[in-house]
Nucleic acid binder design. Structure first.
Ligand SMILES: [Zn+2]
Ligand SMILES: [Zn+2]
Ligand SMILES: [Zn+2]
Ligand SMILES: [Zn+2]
Lengths: 140, 140
DNA sequence: TGTAAACTCTATACTAACTATAGAGTCAAG
DNA sequence: CTTGACTCTATAGTTAGTATAGAGTTTACA
């Protein structure tokens, strides 16, 4: 199987497959005489594993770690659990950041109805820093 | 005020200020004889505006758009409202993606207790592609 | 006056995980 | 034998900065 077919079957793009190879997530395959990569179906499983991990937003470096763990089957799997736990914490904190952001944006949105002009826009006004507005005769 | 003082007063790093200048978010200031940037306090307001926008996770390109709107005060502010609305949608979809991810991770975490070995890890097992497991005598 | 410290300058490389070329080579069909 | 589809490597771009290197400038102090 050449890289084009692997791409179709795995759902990874050709460039992504070459990128994973360069990053050491999958091993370099044999080549044909003409220097084309030649894959067997085992790599499909590897790519599938990587896709599953990426769907959980694990980083490539974390995935690399998991792959290397798989290659030492006897060792305890504690590190896997810890990785997932850590990852959960990251995701939770991202969610709470985004919720705060969402609240802020909602509130900001309320500051302006339609059809004002830019200089009177309630949203832009809110984004500007709060200044002592000099009421017209005051100076610096 | 030279760039170091501006950095302290604005809370942006020196590199960030130069970066914003390069990206056209703030205008290039005067220079001293020795080619040092010289700022007046107006730029503090501009940086503050940018920081407020970044806190809402608006992109630099969106902020650039807002800045250019501010420079045409007469035009209607509809575009501002639309930007915030669009941004809200993006944030909402990120939140729901992350919630799904969180659920998936939680469930995955349950697949493994402590103290197993890597080859029997429930989490790794879950991440591997589902295969017809050949029960030992079966072949391809 | 000399010089050392602190500051600033530009240009470049790095981050993450790809994507998108350019330009060259390979292969199969007609 | 040529066309088209495929593949190769190397390089640049994406975002919003951060972090250098190496050079020049300014300030403080002895
Ligand atoms: Zn993680
Ligand atoms: Zn408005
Ligand atoms: Zn946006
Ligand atoms: Zn486990």
């Amino acid at each position: 199987m050449k890289i084009g077919e692997l791409a179709k079957r795995s759902g990874c793009s050709i460039q992504t497959i070459r990128y994973y190879e360069k990053e050491g997530l999958i091993s370099a395959p044999e080549r044909t005489e003409g220097n084309f990569r030649l894959y067997n179906s085992v790599v499909l499983e590897k790519l599938s594993f990587i896709k599953n991990c990426r769907a959980l937003d694990l980083t490539l470096s974390e995935i690399k770690h998991l792959v290397s763990l798989q290659n030492s089957p006897g060792t305890p799997c504690e590190a896997v659990n810890e990785m997932i736990d850590t990852h959960l914490l990251v995701v939770e904190s991202r969610i709470s950041d985004l919720k705060k952001l969402h609240g802020d944006l909602k509130q900001l949105r309320l500051k302006c109805g339609n059809a004002r002009s830019v200089d009177q826009c309630g949203i832009l006004g809110e984004l500007l820093p709060k200044l002592e507005r000099s009421p017209s005769g005051t100076r610096k």
